[in-house]
Amino acid sequence: MHTQRPDVGASETVTVRYWAGARAAAGVDGETVPAEATVGALTARLLAARPGLAAVLPVCTVLVDGLASGPDDAVRAGSAVEVLPPFAGG
């Protein structure tokens, strides 16, 4: 399930994909959300919209356009953001 708010243009958004336990916690595979300036602001928006993420998001790696990113890293409109929980195994 992939959701997008109809009132937000694609150039002002980012696409978020959730993987494994983050997908289960979010309740969706992915979504398109309004762009935020930083990863921290974006994750705060995601937590507000999807409270189930609170248990898993603090231990997840957030990739922005394929690069591991911290809370102060920039997020540009049009970016692809992936939320990856820790994986076990090897």
Results as ranks from 00 to 15, higher is better:
residue 89 G to V: 12
residue 42 L to N: 03
residue 26 A to R: 00
residue 90 G to A: 12
residue 15 T to Q: 09
residue 2 H to A: 14
residue 23 R to W: 00
residue 79 S to W: 05
residue 48 A to K: 06
residue 15 T to C: 10
residue 56 V to T: 02
residue 17 R to N: 14
residue 74 A to I: 15
residue 7 D to G: 06
residue 4 Q to S: 11
residue 9 G to W: 12
residue 9 G to Q: 14
residue 34 P to A: 06
residue 53 L to T: 04
residue 4 Q to T: 09
residue 83 V to Y: 08
residue 30 G to M: 06
residue 8 V to L: 15
residue 40 G to A: 13
residue 22 A to Q: 03
residue 87 F to V: 11
residue 35 A to L: 04
residue 19 W to C: 04
residue 46 L to W: 08
residue 17 R to M: 15
residue 53 L to D: 05
residue 77 A to F: 08
residue 57 L to E: 01
residue 42 L to V: 05
residue 71 P to V: 07
residue 90 G to R: 12
residue 40 G to L: 10
residue 29 D to G: 02
residue 15 T to K: 10
residue 18 Y to S: 06
residue 3 T to M: 14
residue 3 T to I: 14
residue 16 V to T: 04
residue 58 P to T: 13
residue 83 V to I: 15
residue 35 A to N: 09
residue 58 P to E: 13
residue 68 A to N: 04
residue 52 G to S: 10
residue 21 G to M: 09
residue 13 T to F: 06
residue 8 V to F: 15
residue 84 L to I: 01
residue 49 A to P: 01
residue 42 L to K: 01
residue 78 G to M: 11
residue 75 V to Q: 03
residue 67 L to F: 13
residue 54 A to Q: 10
residue 85 P to R: 13
residue 68 A to H: 09
residue 71 P to W: 01
residue 86 P to I: 07
residue 47 L to A: 07
residue 69 S to G: 06
residue 50 R to Q: 13
residue 57 L to G: 00
residue 32 T to I: 12
residue 68 A to F: 04
residue 63 L to A: 05
residue 37 A to L: 15
residue 72 D to M: 06
residue 50 R to G: 03
residue 79 S to R: 07
residue 48 A to S: 11
residue 43 T to D: 00
residue 6 P to W: 06
residue 9 G to F: 10
residue 72 D to I: 04
residue 74 A to V: 13
residue 79 S to H: 14
residue 56 V to H: 02
residue 75 V to T: 05
residue 59 V to W: 05
residue 11 S to H: 12
residue 69 S to E: 06
residue 67 L to K: 12
residue 76 R to Q: 13
residue 74 A to K: 13
residue 61 T to P: 04
residue 10 A to V: 14
residue 83 V to F: 04
residue 18 Y to P: 01
residue 84 L to N: 03
residue 7 D to V: 06
residue 6 P to I: 09
residue 28 V to S: 08
residue 12 E to K: 11
residue 50 R to V: 08
residue 19 W to P: 00
residue 29 D to T: 08
residue 77 A to W: 12
residue 70 G to Q: 13
residue 69 S to W: 05
residue 69 S to I: 08
residue 67 L to P: 07
residue 77 A to P: 11
residue 48 A to T: 06
residue 39 V to M: 04
residue 63 L to W: 04
residue 13 T to K: 09
residue 7 D to Q: 15
residue 90 G to Y: 04
residue 82 E to G: 03
residue 81 V to S: 02
residue 82 E to Q: 10
residue 8 V to E: 12
residue 21 G to N: 09
residue 40 G to H: 05
residue 37 A to M: 11
residue 69 S to Y: 07
residue 13 T to V: 13
residue 85 P to M: 14
residue 61 T to Y: 03
residue 16 V to R: 00
residue 23 R to E: 00
residue 70 G to K: 10
residue 62 V to N: 00
residue 24 A to K: 11
residue 70 G to E: 10
residue 38 T to P: 01
residue 68 A to M: 08
residue 45 R to P: 02
residue 47 L to V: 04
residue 86 P to L: 04
residue 61 T to W: 05
residue 32 T to S: 15
residue 66 G to P: 03
residue 83 V to R: 02
residue 22 A to F: 01
residue 76 R to S: 14
residue 14 V to I: 13
residue 41 A to C: 09
residue 18 Y to V: 01
residue 69 S to R: 04
residue 65 D to W: 07
residue 23 R to A: 03
residue 84 L to P: 00
